[in-house]
């Protein structure tokens, strides 16, 4: 894959931690890759498995799920459900032989602007190595 390839990554961010963290990263003028397309949800628990699947099957090269660290959820326990949902998706991808790395879960708190910049940059690099998602060109889905 040539170095100019810019992946298309969808990031679902929870309103109270990850989105605020991303906002802080922006305010602090940290470098966030332009491959990341953020979608804000009120709680990471709102990230339906279908959101992730749909993004993946529509051709997103990577899908990031982000929320508050366990124990810090604004709604007490939403992110525990997110975690199970991610485990479910991860396991399905593994069983079906799909590219596991195309989906991921990261906890990013409101103050962790550094961490937000780090994981988005790292993930973009990782996806670059992986190349485009084959579903983006598959017609018979």
């Amino acid at each position: 894959m040539n170095s100019k390839y810019k992946p298309n990554i969808i990031a679902f961010l929870c309103n109270w931690c990850s989105y605020t963290g991303a906002d802080l990263a922006g305010t602090a003028r940290m470098k966030i890759p332009s491959s990341i397309k953020t979608i804000r949800v009120m709680c990471s628990g709102r990230i339906d498995a279908l959101f992730v699947l749909k993004a993946f099957l529509k051709g997103a090269d990577g899908v990031m799920m982000m929320g508050c660290h366990p124990g810090d959820c604004h709604y007490q326990k939403g992110n525990y459900n997110t975690r199970r949902r991610y485990v479910l998706l991860d396991n399905l991808f593994k069983t079906l032989g799909l590219e596991k790395k195309r989906i991921g879960l990261w906890w990013v708190s409101a103050s962790e602007a550094n961490r937000y910049a780090k994981v988005t940059n790292e993930y973009t690099e990782e996806i670059k190595k992986l190349g485009p998602n084959p579903t983006s060109e598959e017609i018979f889905l």
Binding site: P70, Y80, R84, L88, L105
Partner: peptide, 15 residues
């Protein structure tokens, strides 16, 4: 499984 969780499970994920 989809309707429950344990706080201590899958602790390494997301970190």
């Amino acid at each position: 499984p989809g309707g429950t969780y344990k706080e201590e499970e899958f602790a390494e994920i997301g970190e």
